[in-house]
């Protein structure tokens, strides 16, 4: 067992047995060695299920919205990206800080489970694409930090190359590229449902009256859905890359989200979402110095 896992269990056991928290959100191991799905622990004897390894992809902050009526405090393990989601949800008044015990786990970067499919446990597995672009592997908000912070990776990542390639295209070429991508969407909503920025109580895509989004699967509805989502999470996306990881159709969703984040940074200055609880998202408030070129 790795030292990280030992530390997680120790703290979880202490928090649960002392009654400081009544629930712990972490990761566990299932039947597949390259997946570490979420686990909900409320009994001390179950802390042995907790693990930390290179496949702890799920952003557990998403579940805090399901648990707003949970009585008692909740301990939640957060990597750097996950911790930004916590700040975002706090800013949107979706969760209450005093109900949380946040345990920061500095993240060394995770492995790509798709690359592990068919391989024996312990085999060489590619790094996860979403972690290659990560600038904030260390938690930005926590009550306890479980181990030493990790250095920030500064190498150029594949998604940056894709954005550069898309930027160099003519509008028609770019439209053709995204048309091809969105034509594959099966509208399972895994991207939306895993996304911590998608925190509306009722999503406009689910509304029956008016039915903004038609149920037919065709390019026009798919584009409408994906572009609406990209615009809606603009400035609030914490770039955890979960949408792209869970897409069963391999649509490069982070290329849109990163591109939009970069455009916003160019317009409004550096403003990575969820870093600073006091700093409102640029599209969520008005400032007299905001650029007005579009007006």
């Amino acid at each position: 067992m790795n030292q990280h896992t030992v530390k997680m269990r120790e703290l979880a056991r202490e928090l649960l047995s002392s009654g400081q928290v009544s629930l712990v959100l972490g990761w566990e191991k299932g039947n597949l060695w390259y997946k570490s799905p979420p686990v909900f622990i409320s009994r001390v004897e179950d802390v042995e299920k907790l693990i930390f390894d290179e496949f702890c992809h799920n952003n557990l902050a998403k579940y805090l919205m399901d648990l707003v009526h949970h009585s008692g405090k909740i301990a939640v393990f957060v990597k750097g990206c996950d911790s930004r989601a916590i700040n975002r949800l706090l800013q949107d008044n979706q969760i209450k800080r005093e109900k949380l015990y946040i345990i920061g786990v500095p993240c060394p970067g995770l492995k790509d489970p798709d690359d592990a499919v068919g391989k024996k446990q312990g085999a060489e597995v590619k790094n996860s694409a979403k972690c290659a672009t990560c600038s904030y592997p260390n938690p930005v908000v926590y009550d306890a930090l479980l181990w030493e912070t990790v250095p920030v990776n500064t190498t150029k990542a594949p998604v940056e190359e894709l954005i550069a390639k898309l930027d160099s295209m003519t509008p028609d070429e770019r439209y053709a590229y995204w048309t091809e991508q969105f034509s594959r969407c099966i509208r399972c909503f895994a991207c939306r449902n895993v996304c911590p920025a998608c925190n509306c109580r009722e999503c406009c895509f689910d509304q029956a009256e008016p039915d903004w989004l038609g149920k037919a699967n065709n390019l026009s509805e798919n584009q409408f859905m994906q572009m609406t989502r990209a615009m809606h999470v603009a400035g609030r996306c914490i770039e955890c890359g979960e949408c792209e990881r869970v897409c069963p159709m391999n649509i490069p969703l982070m290329a849109i989200n990163k591109k939009v984040a970069r455009d916003i940074a160019e317009l409004f200055g550096e403003c990575a979402a969820g870093l600073d609880l006091e700093k409102r998202p640029p599209l969520g408030h008005f400032d007299l110095n905001d650029p007005e070129k579009f007006m």
Partner: peptide, 11 residues
């Protein structure tokens, strides 16, 4: 508890 309510499994 951990289900996100998406339709990936069904589709």
């Amino acid at each position: 508890q951990k289900c996100l309510g998406c339709g990936a499994c069904a589709y």
